[in-house]
Design a protein around this nucleic acid. Structure first.
Lengths: 246, 246
DNA sequence: GCTAATTTCAAACAATCGTTTGATTGACTT
DNA sequence: AAGTCAATCAAACGATTGTTTGAAATTAGC
């Protein structure tokens, strides 16, 4: 917070021109902290993860976390932005590509859902970068009550949500704007819950213990479910069919 | 933990036969702690809520929390059990009532979803008991990474989940067991995410600022979405229609 | 009214938290 | 070679955490 520079210079990073064959996993302190923090925040949550746990796992000094990121909250935000920002950029770029390819005709729900999920899937496949850990961390962050987390995510997602709400509105012209907002909300809910929870992983292990590419299997189950929900007929406002006891 | 009795006797609870007109909100220490903990756990999460915050809000001594509940974790579990156990009992009882009423014919998805949601709705309507706070707390707990929370919820939900999975299996005979498990998982996800998040409340305030009975409006949007998703056609296992780039 | 059990209370416990400090290291510029 | 500046380090900061203690207060049983 009172740090002189959140982005310090690169004078002493990797001993400069060291032999590349020396140690392949040797990266700068900043990235080591981010990697360790990503895994530990996912495993224990924000409050329950101490900076000492993170810096020990990263094999760096305790003060390095505050030096490079300012505070624990800023470190958490840095962990999220590192992957979340590119992913949402990919989502919007893919949606734009679909729309220009289709000419003037409205996109199908399937296409729009693909534009949301393919970038997430691509991130999850980045095993060398621990992308799968990040998706679970993201799902947890979405349910975290801390105000600074909710504000941060709200800002990060605002542009993408607005973009996809407009696309769904064109794909489902018979739905009023409010209904489209609700259904997009439910889509995001089922997605983040599935990515965050451990239950989904348990189910995959139960039914397909040999399966490696978990996330594609997961989204292949989720996508038809969501597309059908999006296309559901609207419920009459005064209807009580759902809530009569018998 | 090392307490002599987690369930102490009732020797000094409400000053015994005090005048009922004295103070209507005068309840025993144990309930005061539970009420304050329910609200504060929902607002700040488990780790970020200190026992001093809880006991101060409840106007009781700090040591009373450990005396009556043993530990902070046991207090959290007590907060959950107090409402979760009766709600899940209600859900299963309602499902049984529907099944006996229908004779031998299988229930519709709408009926089964009703059996899941009506008890939750009934709990949310208990304004004198702060039931709405509890539903949001429950949704947050479902995304909490703490192992003792996940184990506890898994045990609490196991019987109900198994009961409803069987009902959905009979309602959707064309789906294989694995697919039914997945879709039930997605239903639980959209529900808990919607109940836990603040976004849903913001949307209600945005579109219906005058509306009071928020939860019924919310579930009236959610139920058709989920029912359509449950009835969605199955996706071919080798199909790639969802994930091709163009 | 007396004893025993239960509950409340103020105070302290050891441990851990995020953050800061000041010195030291090492690579760069001039 | 001297000096500059970013980076690392051990150590400590004050504050807060969950939990425990032992005495005081209140109630229940007889």
């Amino acid at each position: 917070m009172a740090l002189s520079s959140v982005v310090p210079s690169v004078s002493r990073l990797p001993k400069l021109a060291e032999q590349a064959t020396e140690r392949p996993n040797e990266v700068d302190t900043k990235s080591r902290i981010l990697d360790a923090a990503e895994e530990l925040f996912m495993e224990h949550g924000f409050e329950a993860t101490s900076l000492r746990l993170i810096t020990t796992a990263a094999s760096v000094n305790l003060a390095a976390a505050n030096y490079h990121f300012g505070s624990k909250e800023e470190l958490f935000q840095a962990v999220l932005t590192r992957r979340l920002d590119p992913m949402n950029q990919d989502r919007m770029a893919l949606l734009t590509a679909y729309e220009t390819a289709s000419g003037g005709t409205a996109l199908t729900c399937e296409k729009i859902i693909s534009a949301m999920f393919i970038p997430a899937l691509k991130l999850a496949r980045n095993h060398d970068q621990g992308g799968k850990n990040f998706l679970r961390l993201l799902g947890r962050a979405y349910a975290d009550p801390a105000p600074f987390i909710r504000e941060f995510l709200s800002n990060q997602y605002a542009a993408m949500i607005a973009r996809f709400r407009a696309a769904f509105g064109r794909a489902l012209p018979h739905l009023e704007r409010e209904e489209v907002s609700w259904r997009l909300h439910f889509v995001m809910g089922a997605l983040s819950y599935t990515l965050a929870g451990t239950d989904a992983l348990k189910m995959i292990a139960q039914f397909h213990p040999e399966e490696i590419n978990n996330d594609e299997l997961l989204l292949k189950r989720l996508a038809p479910f969501l597309a059908a929900g999006l296309r559901a007929p609207v419920q009459a406002t005064d209807s009580h069919q759902w809530f009569q006891e018998t």
